[in-house]
Design a protein around this nucleic acid. Structure first.
Length: 289
DNA sequence: TATTCGTGGCA
DNA sequence: TTGCCAAGAAT
């Protein structure tokens, strides 16, 4: 595919996202990438702005209690991300001079940072050539290169190689291309109702040339939520987020009727370190009592 | 490799 | 109304 065409399109059409503002630090990029995992841009932006004002450097976040960080995470979802980011900030402050590393392998060693986030930070914060593979890029490659309606099951090794083959040699342009491919998937080459009329690589798209065939690969497991432990954990944690003082179990019991599931979920929150029990048997966010 | 882990908007 | 989807990581 013609990656340069995507970069040119990006130059003219990039969204004006808060973390793309000139002067955003590696820390700012890292926080944005963690928050954006499985979470829409619109929900992240206000929280990110709050965090940057409150904790402008890793050591500032690391000095905060876990509970306060979980509370400030609000309803972004997957609150273990907040705990892991807090832990990563501690390592960055202690071992890396309070500066987010630029090296992919060093980033990968930090809690909560995986194959995507490590390369996203290297590319977007430091302008390095690193194949950034997220759900958007996987879809763009599946369509424009492989002619498939959507990406098949992820394979880090194969996905990285696919994107690596597309990136130009020099760091700055490659980093720009990584951002451009993601943006194309997020704005034009979307999962449903792709806006192909606006696509900068329409003329060379393998999926388009094949007549936009429907996806034929294995179907992904349906993503349920209602009635799951995820929902119950969310309800339990929401009580503690909204409470300045530790709460009695009787208060937590109100959020879900099934006591077996309720207790199992509370226990898993304790195991995860998202909730702590005080000496007098009450429940609270960690480190706040 | 397949599951688990929140939350909410939208077609 | 409800299933699908949203810049994944850890296990």
């Amino acid at each position: 595919m013609d990656v340069q065409a995507v970069v040119d399109w990006f130059d003219a059409n990039a969204r004006d996202l808060a973390w793309r503002a000139p002067g955003t630090t590696g820390w700012g990029v890292l926080v944005s990438e963690i928050m954006l995992q499985q979470t829409p841009v619109a929900r992240v932006e206000p929280i990110w702005l709050t965090w940057m004002a409150r904790w402008p450097v890793p050591s500032a976040l690391a000095a905060e209690s876990q509970g306060e960080v979980v509370r400030a995470w609000g309803k972004l979802g997957y609150p273990r991300r907040a705990l892991r980011l807090h832990a990563a900030a501690g390592v960055i402050a202690a071992d890396h001079g309070d500066v987010v590393p630029a090296d992919v392998d060093t980033l990968l060693a930090l809690p909560g940072i995986g194959a995507y986030t490590a390369r996203a930070v290297a590319a977007f914060a430091y302008g390095l050539r690193a194949p950034v593979v997220d759900t958007n890029v996987r879809r763009v490659v599946a369509r424009s290169v492989h002619g498939a309606g959507e990406a098949g099951p992820p394979s880090t090794t194969r996905d990285l190689a696919d994107v690596d083959a597309l990136l130009p040699a020099d760091h700055a342009t490659a980093a720009r291309a990584s951002a451009a491919l993601m943006e194309l998937g997020a704005v034009v080459c979307t999962a449903r109702s792709p806006r192909c009329v606006d696509c900068p690589v329409l003329s060379t798209c393998a999926w388009q040339r094949a007549g936009r065939p429907a996806y034929t690969g294995p179907s992904k497991a349906p993503q349920r939520f209602a009635g799951t432990d995820r929902q119950v954990r969310g309800l339990l944690l929401d009580v503690l987020r909204g409470s300045a003082e530790p709460a009695a179990k009787s208060r937590l019991d109100l959020v879900w009727a099934d006591s077996g599931q309720r207790d199992r979920c509370l226990d898993s929150l304790l195991v995860d370190g998202l909730v702590e029990q005080t000496a007098d048997g009450l429940f609270a966010l960690p480190g706040e009592h």
